Every structure is written in C-alpha cells, then in structure tokens.
Amino acid sequence: MELQQLEDSGLGLTAETVERLFAPYVAFETGPSDKMWRAEVARRARKVEKRFWRRTILGRLPHLGRTAPKIEEEYNEVWDRTALDSYKIPSEKKGRLPWLWRDKRYIAHRFGGARVRLAVLMQVIEQLKPASVLEVGAGNGVNLLYLAGRFPETQFAGLELTAEGVRAAQDCQQQWPEFPEELLDFSPHPLRDRQAFRHVDFRQGSAQELPFADGSFDLVTTVLALEQMERIRKPALREIARVTKGHVLMIEPFRDVNRWGRRRRYIISEDYFSASIRDLPRYGLQPIWATADLPQKAQMQFCCVLARKI
C-alpha cells in the first residue's frame, strides 16, 4: 500500500496541529545538516550495531529474543517507574532523543510522540464513532484514560501483558475522584467527562489469546505494542482480527518504513515487529489507508494503518 501524506490520509490532522502538539516537548529544532543532531544519531547507531551483529552471529537463540517472560519483566519495571504525572507538559527537557519529520530535525522528549499518537487515536474514534474499543497492549492505561474522558459514550477496554501496567491504570481509577487538572493539557482535545476514565475495563492477558468473544469490539487499536510481539505476531494478529467486528488501527513499526539501513538493523537488534502492511490480509485485515507522515524517532519509524475486518 502506498503511504499517504498527512493531509491526504483522511485523519483530519493538519501539519500545524501536529507541530503544536509536539512543540512543548522540543528542546531544540534544527535541520538535516546540524552537527549535534547527526552526532547523537551516530552515537545511538553505534550501540545498535553491536546488538545487531550479536543477534546476526548468534541467531534467534531463545535467551536473546523478546519472549513473553522477558517482555513482562522489562515492562513491569517500566510501568512501575512511569507514574501518570510524568505526562504533564514538561518544564524541563529531560529524556531527550533525536527525532525527524519532513525536513525538520529535533531533539525532543519521547512523550511528544505519545501526545501526537494520542491525537491520531482521537481522530480515528471521532470519525468511526465506535460503540466499543479495545486497546491491545494498553501499558499503564494512559491512552484509554484520556480516550474515555474524550468519548464518554464509548465502552473502552484494555488488555495488558504486565501486572504492573494493569495495576498502574487501576490505581488511577481508584485514587482519582476525577481526572487531575494538571494532566489535562496533555490531551490533544478537551475531555468531555473527567470521571469516565473510571469505567475502563483493564485486564491482564496475552495478545495471542484474547479473553473476548468473536466480534466483541467495533475498533481494536495497538500503539507500539505489536512492536514487542514479533515472536507471537501471527497468533496476535489473528486474535485481533477475530475480536473486532469492524476496524483495527495499528500504530506500529511496519517493515515498510524500516526496510533498510540503521532502522532495519535496529528492528533486528531488538527482535521487533517486522511485518509489512501487505501481509495484513493473510490475517483477515484489509488496509484502508496508511501514513507515516508524523514526527518520528530517528532510529525507528512507525506507520499508522487503518484496516477493516475481511
């Protein structure tokens, strides 16, 4: 499938809106020839090269790959450390990474990308108007907590592999009487109901065996979650197709935008998702549109792909 420019994708997002959402997380903006930006990309690429050759030489040995126990162990620590108040619009530019978009280059915080991806989710839900939405790989629940407040009439559920991710989301539901004022600015659009997040159904489980009946949801979403599921890619995609009765939105590092060079080496070194968009019909999903025209980390890119169930 041909990747579309942002304005042609049907998302309803403009370049000006994306820049506005990303801007608070930018330490500085520059161009492709900036020496500091290029040096930071090169430094990170050298680390990737070491991991890439280690995996290439030793092959897909079980103890080197992203198995479910390893992913669960790693992300239990991540979600234990990532409190939801981390999503406040930052006053300090910490945790900075090299990013690029069109002819621009940035050093920016990773939560800038998370904010833009949340905007994509909101736009798709606004257009499709699903009665029910499942996020597979919901992490600490941040996307669903915001989405529920924006779309209180929609039933939301989240499936997460890690106990710490589910605990983090449920702790927010139990401890917050309403969505905190200091976190509202992160949302790309105003929340319509600051108590709706308390009704999201969070469950622990694996994507290769979703605990839902066939056709349970109008829309299923994944946001850099299939990224971690290369070793269970086939059953996970089949399960996602099984439980949707309408559409699937995937924001993932498809091979289409990580085919060559340092990006491909990074995918291989991390044992990340490597399917192409053209592979989706074999799992029961027909792509409708796809775009990668959004701010991206320099070392790996993602596509937003909307598909319908075949």
Rank of each mutant, 00 (worst) to 15 (best):
D8N: 12
S9D: 03
R20N: 14
P24N: 07
G31E: 14
D34V: 07
R38K: 13
A39W: 14
E40R: 12
R46S: 13
K47Q: 14
E49A: 14
E49Y: 13
R51N: 13
F52C: 04
L58H: 14
L61D: 06
P62K: 11
H63R: 12
T67S: 13
P69N: 03
E72W: 10
N76G: 09
E77P: 06
E77Q: 09
V78E: 07
L84S: 02
K94A: 13
G95C: 03
D103F: 09
I107A: 11
G112H: 15
G113Q: 13
A114G: 08
R115Y: 08
Q123V: 01
Q123P: 05
Q127A: 13
L128H: 06
P130K: 02
V133F: 02
V133H: 00
G137S: 05
G139S: 01
G141P: 07
R150T: 15
A157G: 06
L161A: 04
Q173R: 10
E182L: 09
L183V: 02
A196Q: 05
G205N: 02
G205T: 00
G205M: 04
Q208F: 08
L210W: 05
G215T: 00
V220A: 03
V223K: 00
M229S: 15
P235S: 06
L237C: 04
L249T: 11
I251V: 11
V257K: 04
N258I: 08
S269D: 06
E270Y: 10
Y272T: 02
I277K: 01
D279V: 07
L280Q: 10
W289E: 06
Q296E: 08
Q299H: 10
M300F: 05
C304M: 09
L306W: 05
I310F: 15
I310N: 13
